[in-house]
Design a protein around this nucleic acid. Structure first.
Length: 1032
RNA sequence: GCCGAUGUGGCGGAACUGGUAGACGCGCUGGAUUCAAAAUCCAGUUCUCGCAAGAGAGUGGGGGUUCGAUUCCCCCCGUCGGUACCA
């Protein structure tokens, strides 16, 4: 009987759905296991074969774990708010809610098609009010907490308020950017507005004026991880720095814990390093520099306090608050010019011109606290407002940028570190002996760092400090399609959270998604909504990462309307055991989720402080693009030139005819016969009218217009064109043949003589087989290819070239999983995706290979059925059969555990081939194999499981375990090497002694031949492994 | 520049703890079946030389450790990804 995947798969998909086979309970005696796929954003283009790689892997693992006796949570949902839907709405006019719904339906269809074992009853969509009610609730929690450094966790803001009212802020050790101090009296005398301003410097969700990445084209600000190479990641639009009042999350409070947590998770080292770099911890010191003629001091951060004696100038970021204050009247104009220049520079310019040295002197001086010397204060772009304090002490002797700057502007350089003992060290290496450095002169750099910090602390002008590159996350978007903030401002602009009972604050209906005329967010168009009874609503919305930072928790208890998740649910499921997804979320999503999770942990809402125990990044699947080569005008010209030679006329190329003012150049002309040929694309020749003919007539020439299309059309037989020229010579007139419109000539890749005569074009990979073009399909694919003419190779085929590129529509290399499932079945598609290679590696997709997996499935099926029907027999298996099957069980088990799904597929193939060879169709063996294969090919195995006489789903069968006894060999084939080079193999009994093996090996004829006349220096026998004979 | 991956036949890839390099599959070659094709089945397929037996080379390149290295160490090169005035 024939294997018919389409029938089988349809049948069992329905069975699974009808019987709610994948529904998971929160109450189970089984141990829990949580397998999660990264939240997909349902884009309009649907899934291509690269997307399901991770889903299939996680599905196999989920099914495997289920068979191993775990209660497995394997949910799916959608990150449904976001920019693309809104962009689409602005461009096409479809409401984001509608396009999102449509895209989600398509995704669901595609996912279902693959036979994934999701518990869809737990589906979440971030744009669903039932879901974002809790996103808003979480935001309120963030708003109502601050980070206490003493407790090293988030604490309620009410505690802080109480402390302020009792003793001011003197003893508060919190994560804050608040400067200055106040007493209890000060606090109690503040107005509500003033108190709120202070508190906003402590809240974990707060508002402040920030320099943000403003993207004019998208009409919104972007987070750092939404920008690539200075332009927006989506759309590639320019981004500029702009000050705006924004909601922010104080993620920096968690920097150290985010770093520490990485030690406890099972992620790839590469990914952890990427996060570490993003967090960017650096140890150093802060120090205060007095200003000449001012009372204030400027705070700087340095990782090299040891070099302070070499600090010969100071540099402030252009945006530094004090630039204006310290600039002297004489320098005012120059500074203003410089600031204008900086403001005019886009992010892209700033990034691409890093090497450009710019800056300006403020006229002010600071006092180096250890040398007492006055040092000039400069403003320069290379100092960033957001890092450290936005001010540096510049040490041109030991910092490359400071050095370049000093050289450029002629500033003083004092060497302070003698590195002569470290010839390989460069400037930034912290090694050497201090020179010219007061009390630290002679010390090692490392000691000097400590000594200087100690001195700064003693003098009360500095302290040890740790700095992070990580910045507080921007949480406002000037967009419509996102979660509204549950915030209302009172008359004094003090924000108040909406009462929990009033959640969710639903996103109101809107049909115009452009910013308002004042450049405010789209919700600002809804005056009624914005100006509520309680006050003015926040009209910005939350960013994409709001909803996606906690979705994995919601799956545990997706329908709960009373809590964001119940304690029972979260205490049962705990955290994600296996998280599978793309590497693009390395610093964005994964960092935000971890931060939120730690916050929940602080509040006692979740039992773990890291959400994702093990993480696997699936590699990108590249598209295999195919190319055809279309002959261009140069090709036609060359061809015509060659052909004209064979015609009797004596044509000259690029010939000038006529004289003086009337002279002009034609492509080909024959003086004897007075024929002039113009070779042009048809549409250009069609513009020629009678005037052209007349022009030639005046010179007594016959004008023959020939279209490149004509040339291509008659490529294989030039005679019609020769005829045409001849005729024109007689009759004095010729027209281009309009019937050749849309004729193009395509040259087989292996027939190309000159690359410049052809244009390389992407061709749809679905009409190319083994790199040979299906010319019929090709001609139907585009109207301008309908009259294609080919230069075929010797075998009469059109060969395409190929390349591996990113899969995208524009490259015609997109392969749709639906088509694969349609042609080969979901089981085959699943297994082929896995068979391609290691899950974490990038690899190219090549549909040609899939028939290997298809024929495996046919062969496997044929173990159960022959042409007469069911062939399985209930007989006792032989030792050999048992060995084959149990080796397979052992290896598949081992390989799944190490996420090597590709080799699992190989094992199945090997086993099936062996059983075929043995003509073994025995029930007990096949039954084990069916369960073993079920995670990979669930439809087929469900079918066979029932055919084997079982009730209920194969998903709940018991996973087979191998018996080591069956795998024992009686003899082992040893490789026998001479000097490490294999020369023979020989079977020795399993229990042969070292001595026997050595003796017998040396006695072998082949070995005798190799050792003849040589001294045997050593014989190495590794039992059960190999023999190596060293001769000399 | 810095950080991280990675490099094995024509192609995707395999090789568990240093022990028969190229499993499994694609493709290709030859054969069987067929009127023919598809499908299927059998055999072969790292490269070089050789009719063959066989010999030599071989896991990006160069060195090293070892009886033995795709695997461990050092240096270099290519490809891919991340990041970039981070004080």
């Amino acid at each position: 009987m024939e294997y018919k995947p389409r029938e089988i798969e349809k049948k069992w998909k329905k069975y699974w759905e009808d019987n709610e086979v994948y529904k998971v309970s929160n109450n189970s005696d089984r141990p829990k296991y949580y397998v999660l796929d990264m939240f997909p954003y349902p884009s309009g283009s649907g899934l291509h074969v690269g997307h399901p790689l991770g889903y299939i892997a996680s599905d196999i693992f989920s099914r495997y774990k289920r068979l191993k006796g775990f209660n497995v949570l394997h949910p799916m949902g959608y990150d449904a708010f976001g920019l693309p839907a809104e962009q689409y709405a602005v461009q096409i006019g479809v409401h984001p809610a509608e396009s999102t719904r449509k895209n989600i339906n398509r995704y669901r269809q595609q996912l279902d098609n693959i036979g994934l074992s999701f518990d869809w009853s737990r589906e979440v969509q971030t744009c669903d009010p039932k879901y974002y009610k809790w996103t808003q609730w979480i935001f309120i929690q963030l708003f109502q907490h601050y980070y206490c450094n003493d407790a090293d966790k988030a604490r309620p803001i009410t505690e802080l308020v109480e402390a302020f009212s009792k003793e001011g802020n003197a003893r508060i050790n919190a994560s804050t950017d608040f400067e200055g101090s106040f007493s209890a009296d000060d606090w109690n005398n503040m107005s509500a507005k003033e108190q709120d301003d202070v508190l906003s410097h402590y809240r974990l969700a707060y508002r402040q004026v920030q320099y943000v990445n403003w993207c004019e084209a998208l009409g919104t600000i972007l987070a750092n991880d939404e920008i690539k190479d200075g332009v927006s990641e989506r759309g590639g639009h320019p981004v500029e720095r702009k000050p705006m009042v924004q909601w922010s999350l104080r993620t920096t409070a968690y920097a150290q814990r985010l770093l520490d947590g990485l030690e406890r998770v099972d992620w790839s080292e590469a990914l952890k390093t990427e996060q570490r770099n993003w967090i960017g911890r650096s140890e150093g010191a802060k120090a205060f520099f007095k200003l000449k003629g001012h009372d204030e001091q400027i705070e700087i951060f340095t990782t090299r306090p040891d070099t302070i004696f070499g600090a010969t100038f100071m540099v402030l970021a252009p945006e530094h608050d004090w630039v204006d204050m310290i600039t002297t009247p004489e320098q005012r104009a120059k500074i203003d010019t410089y600031l204008d220049y900086v403001g005019s520079r886009s992010e892209l310019q700033r990034m691409s011109e890093v090497k450009k040295i710019t800056g300006e002197f403020t006229g002010a001086y600071a006092i180096n606290p250890l040398t007492g010397k006055e040092i000039p204060i400069w403003v320069a772009e290379y100092v960033l407002k957001d890092y450290g304090t936005g001010a540096i002490m510049a040490v041109p002797s030991d910092d490359e940028r400071d050095n370049n700057f000093a050289n450029h502007f002629g500033l003083e350089i004092i060497p302070v570190v003698d590195k002569s003992d470290y010839p390989d060290a460069d400037m930034k290496d912290k090694v050497g002996k201090m020179i010219n450095s007061g009390f630290v002169t002679g010390m090692d750099v490392k000691d000097a760092i400590d000594a200087v910090i100690q001195k700064l602390e003693e003098d009360g002008i500095g302290a040890k400090q740790i700095n992070y590159k990580l910045r507080d996350a921007n949480f406002s978007r000037q967009r419509y399609w996102g979660e509204p903030f549950p915030i209302i401002f009172d008359d004094e602009d003090v924000p108040h959270p909406v009462g929990v009972s009033e959640l969710p604050v639903e996103l109101p209906a809107l049909d115009n998604f452009k910013p308002t005329s004042e450049g405010k967010a789209p919700l600002g168009r809804l005056e009624d909504w914005m100006n509520s009874e309680q006050g003015r609503r926040e009209i910005d919305t939350m960013p994409g990462f709001a909803g996606s930072s906690w979705y994995f928790l919601r799956y545990m208890d997706a329908d709960n309307d009373d809590e964001f998740i119940s304690q029972e649910a979260v205490n049962y499921w705990q955290d994600v055991d296996l998280y599978v997804g793309g590497k693009e979320h390395a610093v964005g999503h994964l960092l935000y989720s971890r931060t939120w999770h730690k916050f929940f942990y602080d509040l006692g809402l979740v039992p773990t402080d890291e959400p994702f125990k093990k993480l696997i990044n699936q590699g990108m699947i590249g598209g295999r693009s195919n190319f055809v080569y279309r002959a261009n005008e140069k090709f036609a010209e060359h061809y015509l030139e060659e052909q004209l030679k064979s015609v009797s006329h004596t044509f000259e190329k690029n010939k000038i005819i006529g004289e003086g003012e009337n002279a002009f150049e034609v492509d080909f002309a024959c003086e004897t016969h007075k024929v002039a040929i113009e070779l042009k694309a048809l549409h250009r020749l069609e513009r020629y009218d009678d005037k052209h003919h007349e022009q030639f007539e005046k010179l007594d020439y016959t004008f023959v217009p020939i279209a490149t299309e004509e040339i291509f059309s008659h490529y294989h037989d030039f005679s019609p064109i020769a005829e045409k020229i001849k005729k024109a010579t007689d009759k004095g007139k010729a027209e281009p043949n309009v019937n050749t419109k849309d004729t193009a000539l395509f040259v087989s890749q292996d027939m190309i003589e000159d690359r410049s005569m052809v244009t390389k074009l992407h061709v749809d990979v679905n009409i190319v087989h083994h790199d040979f073009l299906d010319t019929d399909a090709f001609e139907k694919s585009r109207t301008d290819f309908r009259r294609a003419v080919y230069v075929l190779n010797e075998e009469g085929k059109y060969k395409c070239s190929h390349a591996i590129e990113k899969m995208s529509k524009s490259k015609f290399n997109v392969v749709n999983p639906d088509d694969m499932v349609d042609q080969y079945g979901a089981d085959c598609f699943r297994m082929y995706e896995m068979f391609l290679g290691p899950i974490e590696q990038g690899k190219p997709w090549n549909t040609e290979g899939i028939n290997g997996v298809q024929s495996f499935l046919k062969k496997f099926y044929a173990l159960f059925y022959d042409e007469n029907g069911w062939r399985v027999v209930d007989e006792k298996p032989t030792a050999e059969e048992l060995k084959v099957v149990h080796a397979c069980i052992k290896n598949v088990n081992r390989d799944i555990e190490r996420f090597a799904f590709n080799t699992c597929v190989s094992e199945f193939m090997k086993c099936t081939n062996e059983l075929r060879r043995l003509k073994s169709y025995k029930k007990s063996l096949l039954q084990d194999l069916v369960v073993l294969l079920a995670p990979f090919a669930p439809h087929l195995c469900e079918e066979l499981w029932h055919e084997l006489g079982h009730e209920g789903t194969v998903n709940l069968a018991t996973y087979p375990t191998h018996n080591e006894d069956y795998l024992k060999e009686s003899a082992i084939t040893y490789p026998i090497s001479i000097n490490g080079k294999k020369r023979a193999t020989y079977d020795f009994p399993i229990d042969a002694s070292k001595e026997d093996i050595e003796k017998e090996a040396l006695a072998l004829d082949i070995i005798q031949k190799w050792t003849e006349g040589k001294t045997i220096r050593k014989v190495i026998v590794v039992p059960k492994r190999m023999v190596n004979i060293v001769v000399g």
